[in-house]
Amino acid sequence: MSCEFHHRMLLIHELDDLLLNSCRFPHHRTIPMNVGYFIHRIGDWIMLMLGESIFSLIIVDIPNETPAFRVTFYCGILTVVMLMYLHYESEPHDADTHAMRRSKDAGVVWNIVVHIYSFALISLGAAFTFFLTNFDNDQNYRRLAGGNDDGTDIETLRQKSANLFCISLAIIFACYDGMTALHIGYTAASKRLGSTERKTWIAVALRAAVIPFTATICLWETDPTHLSYIGLLIMVVQVLLRKLGIVCSNHDQVPNPDEAGREPEHVTTTPHNLRQSVLLASAWTNMTKEELEALGDEEISNNFGQSQEGTE
């Protein structure tokens, strides 16, 4: 009886504690996230969004595939492929260089950016579906766009799809730059920009200018085929600007481990290390394993150490 009473009291105490804790913000320590696992999962999610854009292109089935349709289709595929490339350029491959590990504030903002970026990718896929459906007859285009056969103007629908395409693409570019900036951090970014030449600033300014330019294309062009050409061209420009930025500043888009504050792993060349390497690489030498093992440390250092330096 007393045992049962004790258990009841314990449960009441636990529930009381739970209610009190729920109403309190955790000022004390919590369980940290496994950043490596989480960024891997986020990568899967973004891959899913990019796959949806491809899916939106493939799923359109129209009876008469004109050359213009095929060109638009392949422009769309190439655009998504380049988006994938730009995504991997914007994201670090190591948890130590990720915004979530660098700073909790940057991690939270990065999380919000990922939400916006994911939806922009979905919108871009929908815009591609619109573009390809345009090659079907006007009636189908109206129906897919949610318009009525009797009242909706085809130009209005084209304008809407152009708006969707341009604004989505501009948001995606802004998200790429935002995510890169969050991974690098203010201090490292200012150090990079402060120590670089004028051409780097030009590359940065051009990259910033691409975003408003992309967002305003729909003001002067609504033709789906032309928009898909322009979209692909802008993607190529973005990729080139990224490469230009890397060449000018001698930095990757995402920070390297040194910038993230992690100590670089120094590899010292000792006779022991060389012996291990040589033994592992016996397949590439004319010597047998026994002959290699019989070599002294000095012989290994003199022969293989020098040849390795020579190769470098």
């Binding site: 969004m49 949806e52 899916f55 939106s56 929908a126 619109f130 629908l157 708006n163």
Partner: peptide, 15 residues
């Protein structure tokens, strides 16, 4: 995957 397809279809149907 199905969710993203359905969301995309909402946009295609009504922009």
């Amino acid at each position: 995957v199905a969710a993203t397809y359905n969301v995309s279809y909402i946009l295609v149907q009504d922009t």
